[in-house]
Simulated scan of single mutants.
Amino acid sequence: MKRLFPAPLFSVALAVLWLVLNLSISPGNVLLAILFGVLAPLLMAPLRPLPVRIRKPGTILKLFVLVGRDVLVSNVQVGWTVWNAKRRPPRSAFVKVPLDLRDANGLAALSMITTVVPGTVWSELALDRSVLLMHVFDLDDEARFIEHFKTAYERPLMEIFQ
């Protein structure tokens, strides 16, 4: 049964969504909703991530608070830099951050954190997952930035996922 319906709630949600978006419960739409609800999860099953094993759930709260603080501080810093761009233009740079984190779920969380924090953009991940290329909007000290990134984000994620 699990092979035919790898994600039963997803199947039901897709079928209902199809009917709602079409504003019709005609036999043809019901048939298409059922086909879509059954076939889409089957075709997407290989794309589903591995099951998550969280090792230290208490670290999640600490990381959440730290990321929230960094988001607020970075918003102010980026705003101030943009406001004063004529006096001192931002020193944008690409930074290669060596990674110790290898877990796919941890890397996905790290990419989301990088996306949420203003002034940083996840640009590229090496095929062997050993180096992350990031764009930083205003970089003062590359070594200090790398140390902060690894200490604040990578190490807690390693505690949680590895």
Rank of each mutant, 00 (worst) to 15 (best):
L132G: 02
V95I: 15
L23R: 15
K96V: 09
N22G: 03
L110A: 05
K62A: 13
L133P: 01
G79T: 09
V73E: 08
V73R: 12
S130D: 06
I25L: 13
Q162F: 01
S11F: 01
A152M: 10
L32I: 12
A40K: 03
L39Q: 06
A33V: 05
I160F: 11
D141P: 10
L32W: 11
I60W: 08
I25E: 03
A15P: 04
Y153N: 12
A85I: 11
L101V: 06
E124N: 12
D70K: 08
D138K: 07
S123H: 05
L99W: 02
N105K: 00
L110T: 11
V131N: 08
P49D: 13
R129L: 00
V117C: 04
R87C: 00
S11N: 01
V97C: 06
P46L: 13
A93F: 11
E154P: 12
R53F: 11
A109W: 02
Q77P: 01
R48Q: 15
T151A: 10
D128G: 06
S74F: 01
W80E: 07
M1L: 11
V131Y: 05
S26K: 06
K86L: 14
K86W: 11
G37A: 05
Q77E: 12
V67K: 15
P57W: 11
S111V: 00
K62D: 12
G37L: 08
L23K: 14
L125I: 00
H148C: 07
M44T: 15
A108H: 01
M134S: 01
I60T: 04
P118Q: 04
R53N: 13
E147K: 14
L21Q: 04
V52K: 12
A33N: 06
Y153Q: 09
L31P: 02
R155A: 14
